[in-house]
Computed example of a mutant assay.
Amino acid sequence: MNIFGKHVLIRAIEEHDLPALHKWANDPDIWNMLAGWHFPSNFEYQKKWFDNLMNNQSSQRFAIDVPGLGLIGTANIVDIDWKNRRGYHGIMLGDNDVRGKGYGFDTIMTIMRYAFEELYFERLDTDIIEYNKASINIYTQKCGWKIEGVRRRWYFRRNRFWDNMLVGITREDYFTLVEQNKYWA
Rank of each mutant, 00 (worst) to 15 (best):
H38I: 00
G90C: 01
E130M: 05
N56V: 15
D127S: 12
T126F: 10
V8M: 07
I138S: 03
I13L: 15
P28F: 13
Y114V: 07
W162N: 05
R113E: 11
R158F: 14
A185K: 14
G149L: 07
G73A: 04
Y139W: 11
G168I: 03
I147P: 01
N26F: 06
K146H: 15
E122R: 12
M112N: 15
A35I: 04
D17C: 15
N55Y: 12
P28I: 14
D29P: 00
H38L: 00
N137Y: 13
H38Q: 08
Y120A: 08
E179F: 05
D79H: 11
Q46G: 03
D97E: 14
G73S: 05
H22P: 12
D95V: 04
H22K: 13
D95Y: 06
I91P: 02
W145Y: 15
L124P: 04
F43A: 02
S135P: 06
Q46C: 09
L9A: 01
E122V: 03
Q180V: 08
N56C: 10
L71N: 08
H22L: 13
N26E: 13
V78E: 02
G149H: 10
D51R: 08
D95E: 14
W31C: 10
A115W: 02
N137C: 06
I77K: 00
I91W: 03
F105I: 07
L71V: 09
G70P: 04
E15C: 06
V78R: 02
Y183R: 10
V150C: 08
Y139I: 04
H16T: 14
T140E: 06
H7M: 10
W184P: 06
L18A: 10
I169A: 07
R157C: 11
I138M: 15
R61D: 14
N56Y: 00
A35N: 10
F105S: 11
F4A: 04
L18C: 13
K23L: 15
D79Q: 11
D17K: 01
I147D: 01
T74V: 05
N181T: 10
M112I: 04
F175N: 03
Q180H: 08
M33E: 09
H89E: 07
F161V: 03
T110W: 07
N137T: 08
T126V: 03
R158K: 15
T107L: 10
V8R: 05
G36T: 02
L119K: 15
Y45R: 09
I136P: 01
E172V: 06
M1S: 11
D97A: 07
N96F: 05
Y45M: 13
R113N: 14
N181F: 05
D106K: 06
Y174H: 07
L93N: 03
I30W: 00
A12N: 11
W184I: 10
P67Y: 11
M165K: 14
R171P: 01
E117P: 01
L34G: 02
D125F: 13
K142T: 03
I80C: 00
I13Y: 12
D17Q: 14
E130C: 06
P40A: 08
K6E: 05
D79W: 05
L9D: 01
P19I: 15
I3Q: 11
G144L: 12
I80S: 00
T140F: 07
Q57T: 00
I3R: 12
N159M: 07
W24P: 02
